[in-house]
Design a protein around this nucleic acid. Structure first.
Length: 385
DNA sequence: AGCACGTTTCCTGATT
DNA sequence: TAATCAGGAAACGTGC
């Protein structure tokens, strides 16, 4: 059994061997990256990086941008602080950078770092949240950023929903609440859930409600443990069946009664209370359009894990990885729990005409930013445009 | 109040 | 067979 001081020595030695100089090797990213809207303090933090304080330079920086040395320092600090037995640590797991670290699920932490895993995981989450807090909440980009942070960041405490691939938390996205809500109005099925949604003063406080709703509603039974492409998809019939098992039958029943004509019918089938409440509180400011919302997800790679990805960053080609999850997130933002990818994609197709998006023929779930879309290019992102 | 805009909702039909 | 795409039609919510 190694003592904590021995471990400290081991880690120090490892540190010294890997990073022989006293100067902190800042990754180029840290020197050049700017945070379009929320970077006011970040710049100061980054320039502060080499100063080091009580805990270490890593505390000044968003964990996503940690170097391997930062990660090592961070682990070392926690080993010493918790008097953890160093010999139980697999050093291979200590030589990873911040990006990799942030992609680890809680389970992965427990597997990799043993009893120290929980502590490390919790602390990392705290640090991530701390550094993710945007400075200007009125900025639409930050709104999306905050929404994502809330949406993704509040969920990992539910280990059941986590995968080892680090994207597990994204699988906790609740799909199909919409029609459930409709159903609720007739049978009061999820009163707690919709209460959360309608009581929000704005769309960006909804993250916690979202996670709360996980606890308070039977949504867990509808949650998907798989992820598309790598680990399954919402296009998986089984997945869809699970997600929509309730609403499908409801819709069928509804359609069986009367076939509606074309176009959007007046909104009926709402509880009167709910309707009054939403009417009263509907004053969401304009400004963030769907394409901007999509863009903002894409330009936060550390936050969109698993939701969407760039197919061709330079050409602005991107792909929905979790189409229903993105739709739910969009719905959350618009206080519309019945949003689906089908509806979202219809709105996306309207952008073709306005040249905000361009068609990408033959590729499912793939879109491309058009000449009238702005703010997605690398230059624009780094300039905060 | 009325209009424009940006969706949202639902639909049919085609394609993958 | 089902998911997705395409786009028409009309309703809705919001800002002006």
């Amino acid at each position: 059994m190694a003592t904590s001081s021995e471990l400290s020595r081991i880690l120090n030695n490892a540190n010294g061997a890997v990073y022989p100089t006293e100067l902190l090797p800042l990754p180029p990213m840290l020197h050049t990256v700017t945070f379009p809207a929320s970077g006011i303090n970040k710049t100061a933090q980054l320039t502060d990086l080499s100063c080091g304080h009580m805990l270490g330079p890593w505390q000044q920086v968003n964990p996503v941008y940690w170097t391997k040395k930062n990660v090592l320092d961070w682990i070392e600090y926690h080993v010493e602080d918790s008097k953890y037995d160093a010999s139980l640590l697999n050093m291979d797991y200590c030589y990873i950078d911040g990006v990799s670290l942030c992609q680890l699920s809680r389970e992965a932490f427990l597997n990799m770092y043993g009893d120290l895993g929980e502590r490390l995981y919790q602390n990392l989450e705290r640090l991530r949240l701390k550094h993710d807090i945007p400075c200007d909440l009125s900025d639409p980009l930050n709104e999306t950023y905050t929404l994502l942070t809330d949406f993704l960041g509040n969920l990992p405490q539910i280990p059941t929903f986590l995968n080892d691939d680090g994207f597990g938390l994204l699988d906790t996205v609740v799909v199909g609440c919409a029609d459930i809500k409709k159903e609720r109005d007739s049978c009061n099925y999820f009163s707690g859930f919709s209460g959360d949604m309608t009581a929000l003063s704005d769309g960006y406080e909804s993250g916690s409600s979202m996670s709360d709703s996980h606890h308070s509603s039977p949504m867990g039974s509808l949650m998907n443990p798989s992820s598309p492409e790598s680990t399954g998809s919402e296009s998986d019939p089984e997945y869809m069946e699970k997600q929509f098992s309730i609403n499908k039958s409801f819709v069928k029943q509804e359609r069986g009664v009367q076939k509606r004509g074309r176009g959007r019918p007046p909104k009926i089938n709402r509880g009167s209370d709910h309707y009054l409440e939403t009417k009263k509180s509907k004053h969401a400011p304009r400004g963030t359009h769907l394409w901007e919302f999509i863009r903002d997800i894409l330009i936060h790679p550390e936050k969109n894990q698993g939701l969407m990805k760039w197919e061709d960053r330079r050409d602005g080609v991107f792909k929905f990885l979790k189409s229903e999850a993105v739709a739910q997130l969009w719905g959350q933002k618009k206080k519309n729990s019945s949003m689906t990818y089908e509806k979202l994609s219809r709105a996306m197709r309207y952008y073709y005409k306005r040249e905000i998006l361009e068609r990408v023929d033959g590729r499912r779930l793939v879109y491309k930013f058009g000449k009238n879309a702005s703010g997605w290019k690398l230059e624009e992102v780094s300039l905060g445009m």
